Amino acid sequence: MKPEITVIVPIYNVERYIRKCLDSLLAQTFANFEVWAVDDGSPDNSTEIVLEYAAKDQRIKSILKENGGYGSVLQDSIDRLESKYFLICDPDDWLARDALEKLYNFAEEKQLDLAVADKYNVYEEDGEEEYVKSIPSWMQSIKADTVYTAPEDVQKFSLFEVTPHAKLYKTSIAKGIVFPQKVSYTDFVLYMLALSKTKRIAYDQEALAYYLKNRPGNTATDVRPSVIKDYLTGFDAILKQLPQEQADRNQVLYYRLFIQLRYICKQYAKVSKDPFKDEYIKLIYQGAASLQPYRQEIYQVTMENTTKSSRIFQHGLLTPVTSHWFVKKIIKKFM
């Protein structure tokens, strides 16, 4: 029987965590799925552990490839997918026992291209679980269990948590996406570009995934200055793949890229070792310049949390003659 869902598990240096991930998958109440455990050139014993599990259950497939980063795993996997749906489960995370069943039934009953649910953040030192809603606390216009089809409403989901946790994608909306290689944060590329093709989406307000928030080596604990380049590489990949002739339709996605640029400025304030003198500030300036042709589309978007001051920063950042000054002002605010 052809699997209905493929669970993609990108693997790199996770031998300490992979068993819990695979155990959670094999314990699923939904049976018609397969696991692609993709070893991205990992130097540890992760694959040996995967092979141990594959010998016990034929739904687990061990796939080996040369190291190319998270984006290369997504690229190779999505290009070859034949299942109707897929879900990404990072190898240091795990799923609720009924996660696949609930997401699958939710998507099938509502004929969704994308189903989004909540997650728990889990902290390694004490195992504390923190319920995290995918939807922003200020957003009242999107309701749980409601199907959204208008582009503006669909794209409001870009303001949700962008990580892959508890998101079930219809495979067809991810085909054709080109992912950057050798960088992190490419799950943002997947989510944004999939939304640009989504016709039907809904939010299931229950936590179905567990995210190990603060383990050493994951992206949440990454303080390298070069993460700024990773962020902007993903930013650029999205901007280049959004069809220019559909700019009016994708206004909210361009607005979300503006929000991402502001976030990158905030992160720069945290990680830069030589503020305003290193190579990364120039990349931020370039990112702002690349978004400026879409400023009219961005100006058309008003969210529930939009304020007069945020509008001032928006206009300043997206106006060529003032852009650098506003970039610096945002960064200084977080230093």
Results as ranks from 00 to 15, higher is better:
Glu129Gln: 15
Tyr231Thr: 03
Trp138Ala: 13
Gln314His: 07
Cys265Pro: 06
Gln267Lys: 14
Lys229Ala: 14
Arg256Lys: 15
Lys119Glu: 11
Ser46His: 05
Lys175Asp: 09
Glu128Met: 14
Tyr12Trp: 14
Pro10Ile: 03
Ser272Ile: 03
Glu128Ser: 15
Pro216Ala: 13
Ser77Trp: 00
Leu51Asp: 14
Glu152Ile: 08
Asp153Ser: 12
Glu245Ile: 01
Ala288Met: 13
Leu26His: 00
Phe30His: 06
Ser141Tyr: 00
Tyr268Leu: 08
Asn32Asp: 15
Glu108Tyr: 07
Pro164Val: 04
Lys2Arg: 12
Ile281His: 06
Ile238His: 03
Tyr120Trp: 14
Tyr268Gly: 04
Asn67Ser: 02
Asp113Ser: 12
Asp187Ala: 07
Thr198Gly: 11
Lys102Ala: 05
Ala37Trp: 02
Leu257Tyr: 03
Gln292Cys: 12
Tyr231Leu: 10
Leu114Trp: 09
Gln246Phe: 09
Pro10Asn: 06
Trp138Gly: 14
Tyr280Asp: 09
Tyr231Met: 13
Gln75Gly: 04
Val321Leu: 11
Thr306Tyr: 06
Val271Tyr: 14
Gln286Ile: 09
Pro225Cys: 10
Ile173Gly: 04
Tyr210Gly: 08
Ser172Lys: 04
Phe106Gly: 02
Ala269His: 01
Asn67Tyr: 11
Ile264Gly: 04
Thr302Ser: 12
Ala96Cys: 02
Ile18Gly: 00
Phe334Asp: 09
Ala117Glu: 08
Ala115Lys: 07
Asp92Trp: 02
Thr146His: 03
Ile259His: 13
Leu74Lys: 00
Leu208Arg: 07
Tyr255Leu: 11
Ser62Gln: 10
Leu74Asn: 00
Ala31Cys: 02
Tyr148Met: 07
Thr186Arg: 07
Ile284Gly: 06
Glu130Trp: 10
Ile78Ala: 02
Gln140Arg: 13
Val38Leu: 06
Leu212Lys: 12
Tyr280Ile: 06
Gln296Leu: 14
Thr47Ala: 15
Glu129Phe: 11
Tyr263Lys: 01
Arg59Ile: 00
Ala107Ile: 02
Glu124Trp: 12
Glu279Trp: 07
Val7Lys: 01
Gln241Ser: 05
Pro91His: 10
Thr29Gly: 01
Tyr17Asn: 06
Asp126Lys: 08
Thr307Pro: 02
Phe86Ala: 01
Ser42Asn: 11
Glu108Phe: 04
Pro10Arg: 03
Leu81Asp: 02
Ile78Asp: 00
Asn13Cys: 05
Lys119Thr: 03
Thr322Met: 10
Val189Arg: 07
Asp39Arg: 05
Gly287His: 00
Tyr169Ile: 04
Pro243Arg: 05
Val227Ser: 11
Thr306Ser: 14
Ile63Ser: 05
Leu195Cys: 08
Ile238Val: 15
Gln300Tyr: 08
Phe106Trp: 10
Ala99Met: 01
Asn105Phe: 14
Asp44Val: 02
Ile5Leu: 06
Asn45Arg: 11
Leu74Arg: 02
Ile330Phe: 07
Arg200Cys: 11
Phe106Ser: 01
Arg224Asn: 15
Tyr17Leu: 03
Val50Pro: 04
Gln300Glu: 12
Lys282Cys: 13
Val327Leu: 14
Phe33Glu: 03
Leu87His: 04
Gln111Ala: 15
Pro275Arg: 13
Val132Thr: 11
Glu129Tyr: 10
Pro243Thr: 13
Cys89Ser: 09
Tyr210His: 15
Lys167Ser: 03
